[in-house]
């Protein structure tokens, strides 16, 4: 975890999540687009609700940003984040400020893929689930586990970039049960 200060023993001075109950997620996918395009799309955080499930809005103010999401139970969750590391067209890393509803740190890295396959996008996420690891385990059982969510969001990001939309069946006809 070179990109984000993970709160582990090796970064005791800048913990992003308290204690040892942060949950780490790493997911990668390859997207047929240039690093420049993907970086620019992602760096405009206002775009992120287009593909991140549950994220309602992000407003940027310089290096800081305010995030509003809806929890699976429909509850509004808000936090403020700061960009803590950034390399043009390669890396964006952020961390929530103290006092946030959901404490987390994350990074996204863009690397050229071999040949004309586009760009390898890797998202790393460390996340302080309310209720800690036990809550995350329960969430995995109920299908609301963060690693699965990051994977879904990344799949949506890829679809939006490659096809201009993401596949859905929400609103299609179905027989009565």
């Amino acid at each position: 975890m070179d990109e984000i200060n993970s709160g582990s023993e090796t970064h005791p001075d800048s913990p992003s999540v308290q204690g040892n109950h942060g949950i780490k997620v790493t997911k990668s996918c390859t997207i047929k687009s240039s690093r420049e395009t993907l970086y620019a799309f992602w760096r405009k955080f206002e775009n992120l609700p287009l593909f991140m499930n549950g994220l309602v809005s992000v407003t940027q103010n310089g290096n800081s940003s305010h995030w509003i999401a809806k929890s699976p139970g429909g509850k509004k969750v808000e936090w403020d984040a700061v960009v803590i590391n950034e390399t043009l067209n390669e890396l964006i890393a952020w961390r929530t400020v103290e006092g946030s509803d959901v404490s987390h740190a994350g990074s996204v890295r863009f690397k050229p893929a071999p040949g004309n396959r586009g760009t390898e996008v890797t998202v790393k996420f460390e996340y302080d689930a309310p209720g800690g690891k036990l809550a995350a385990k329960l969430a995995k059982i109920t299908g609301k586990e963060p690693s699965q969510q990051v994977e879904k969001d990344l799949t949506h990001f890829k679809a939006v970039i490659e096809t201009g939309e993401f596949p859905t069946t929400q609103g299609q006809p179905k027989g009565e049960k």
Partner: peptide, 15 residues
């Protein structure tokens, strides 16, 4: 399997 009456499908995406 049964033939049922269901809502008509709608356009959900631009493509």
């Amino acid at each position: 399997v049964r033939v049922e009456t269901v809502p008509d499908p709608k356009i959900l995406n631009p493509r």
